[in-house]
Design a binder for these strands. Structure first.
Lengths: 416, 416
DNA sequence: GCGGTTTGTTCGTGATGACGACAAACATCG
DNA sequence: CGATGTTTGTCGTCATCACGAACAAACCGC
């Protein structure tokens, strides 16, 4: 495998030298990451996994415990000989990320503990005319307040992750365009952070990207280094994972698979182009093919699914066409990115059981044999919380990269 | 930006702990990388760039000098006050990579010095019936011999990089399928390494991938973290760069953009699918549109370019169609990957001056405004040597990642 | 030739992990 | 129930590596 740091001239960070502190920080991060992703782990297990010595692991875990991120429980003897190893685990309740999901008709907020546990959550349904930026921020603050009430007093908020139905420019935490909300070039991250008094960092992401992240970190694609998550509702979004990390692109727009041209002489897309993938596989398109109004929403889709399960001819045909176009677009992405797993979420996750066969056929026909050799296409395994969990992971990244860098200063003071 | 190591469970390498040696190795790599990519650099400049102290840089450069990778020349006083800083540079002639380019009608071999200098090269033209695996290996060994004769006696061969016209599985250095050569599932890397007596590592890559790497390391996309290189000849290949590193995909197939479906009801592709991008923009397609036989090769393409420059109507129209389809496919890739630069090489590089306008229009029409905001589309800046230079970079990676890991044992022995 | 400036070099210090010795905690067996 | 073996935490020592300060060297300008 090729692996190198970026060439040069791209800023001082790239060619920065390493010092001893870097090592410590990286090792702390490694340990915390294991606990965050794999759950409670004994010290001896950590020795085996990291290759570090017992003494090093002891010191590292100790430091994490002192900083309030980790607890160690006395070992429960598991029957094997030898001295039992204490099990470290993350302090979920004391270290939480606030996750926010901004949809058109509702706003969800959750407190997610380190380790990925949803501790508390709250959802505000709202009429379609209540989607202005200010209203949205008000609603979020309201919901955040309610969620925070339920947290333990000693709890520390690590950060906030927000998944928005719209195209997000990650480089400056702004919403570039969100047609369904009527937003355009909104510095949403900055506004929200300001409204919250800059108490913690606020990170924005496209909802599909967030869901993809959740899927890779805690769902079907766990442990997969090259994955592709396609999220479909009204629009179609995607999250790309390469080398185990999300592909963001130059300004964080990567993954807008919905606007890949697949049918250059097809229907006009609301993005201004013609024959985007979204126009062929989006919710509206599926509904139209069954003779329903394209804005029927989830209820209408459920009706189609029921019809198809009952083998109603019109519905079956519509699904066949859907499968065909889904397969066409996927084949392109498979040839370009060679993922080892494709996760279908949202609409496509629900559709998958009904169209798996035809979808696989289409891919077998159109994708290069070599590119699809190791491929698995699976439905999303995380349910409704995918976006929230992904948004939380976004916020956790800070601590996971540098566990002590952002630690609570109080704890530093009396910790040693 | 999100950045994290791969989650877990993906092998011990991922969650490996760092030790002090790691720091040394990483810092040596940083210094060597600067010299390799930026050319001769003074010590004081290196201090500024890496953030390391003068003493550390001194020790690091010293170690690289002792290992025979680097020389230090006495500083030439540049007029500024203060003690002049000695300039370190890479020992190109003593540390070379052998680069090989396997095309249908010729085989090129070059000795590329560390730093990216082509020292010597040799090309064997061969009839189209001489493309068997064995013949090819014979020809390579022959050419390698001739090139090596010209190297200085103290020269050390770091490795061999091979760019092949075909789909390469990087995970095991094999050629999965190369239609133009008639190869299929050939463990070419292993065979070649064996024929060379396993003297050095042999790394395989698709020719477009190699060219893309060259473009990112030393060409138009130098310093760009998210780039996309589209290489067109008979087939269409692509190299994806994300976060400054090539995207390889699960088994190293990523970048087969030529087989992205763009026209589902279009022409049959030799890959078995229908309406692949390649069928619309490949050399054959361009020639067919001008009424020429599709296998006319480079000479025929040149004729088309001449016609277009002379504003012959048929040629202009053909180029317009070419530009349209090139734009359609590119727009999809831009929306999915959000690169900040697209480099057009091979056929497309030659075409670019003639179609730039129409291409930009098509992209403006089809790609999301946010995704193309920072985008530049440029022709390749490296000429005929792109594949060779990229193949060499592939081989250099070993040393650049761990400068002393592979050093000549002789030098270790008397070096200290 | 003298001061000012920049840079290489040397040496001591601090941080960090490896390693070995020892003690603690558990299971098994007699 | 105690002896033994095994596994593991802890402590002290050592090696590695970068930092920082002091000093020397090499250049400029006057």
């Amino acid at each position: 495998m090729i692996s190198s740091r970026s060439a040069l001239a791209s800023g001082p960070t790239d060619s920065a030298g390493l010092r001893s502190e870097t090592v410590r920080s990286a090792n702390l991060a490694t340990v915390l990451r294991v606990l965050h992703f794999d759950g409670p782990t004994s010290r001896s297990e950590m020795v085996a996994r990291t290759g570090l010595t017992r003494s090093a692991i002891g010191a590292l875990v100790g430091e994490l415990v002192r900083s309030g991120l980790v607890v160690e429980r006395r070992a429960i003897s598991d029957g094997s000989p030898g001295r039992p190893s204490p099990v470290a685990s993350v302090m979920s309740e004391q270290n939480v990320a606030l996750a926010v999901e901004v949809l058109v008709d509702s706003i969800g907020v959750a407190a997610v503990g380190l380790g990925g546990v949803v501790l508390h959550s709250f959802r505000i349904d709202r009429p379609r005319d209540r989607v202005s930026v200010e209203r949205t921020i008000d609603d979020i603050i309201d919901a955040v307040g309610r969620v925070r009430e339920q947290l333990v007093p000693s709890c520390r908020v690590i950060g906030m992750g927000v998944g928005v139905v719209g195209i997000v420019r990650r480089s400056d935490n702004s919403v570039s365009i969100a047609p369904n909300l009527g937003w355009r070039d909104v510095p949403f991250g900055a506004k929200l952070a300001a409204s919250l008094g800059h108490e913690f960092p606020v990170l924005l992401a496209n909802d599909a990207d967030a869901a993809a992240l959740a899927e890779v970190r805690r769902g079907a694609a766990m442990g997969i280094d090259d994955a592709l998550c396609i999220w479909g509702e009204v629009g179609v979004g995607g999250g790309l994972i390469s080398r185990g990390e999300p592909v963001t692109g130059a300004s964080g727009f990567a993954g807008e698979v919905g606007h890949m041209p697949v049918n250059p002489d097809g229907r006009a897309c609301q993005c201004g182009s013609i024959g985007c993938w979204e126009t062929e596989i989006g919710e509206g398109s599926l509904l139209r093919r069954t003779g329903r109004p394209p804005d029927g929403g989830r209820a209408a889709v459920d009706a189609v699914l029921r019809d198809a399960s009952a083998a109603v001819p019109g519905a079956l045909e519509a699904l066949a066409v859907e499968a065909r176009w889904l397969g066409i677009g996927l084949s392109g992405l498979i040839n370009v990115l060679n993922p080892s797993m494709v996760v279908l979420g949202g609409l496509f996750g629900r559709l998958h059981p009904l169209i798996a066969r035809q979808l696989d056929d289409e891919i077998a026909h159109r994708a290069l044999p070599s590119a699809r050799a190791q491929l698995r296409v699976v439905p999303s395994s995380i349910g409704a919380d995918a976006v929230l969990l992904g948004a939380a992971e976004l916020a956790f990244e800070t601590v996971l990269n540098d566990p002590l860098g952002t630690r609570d200063l109080r704890l530093v003071a009396d910790g040693r």
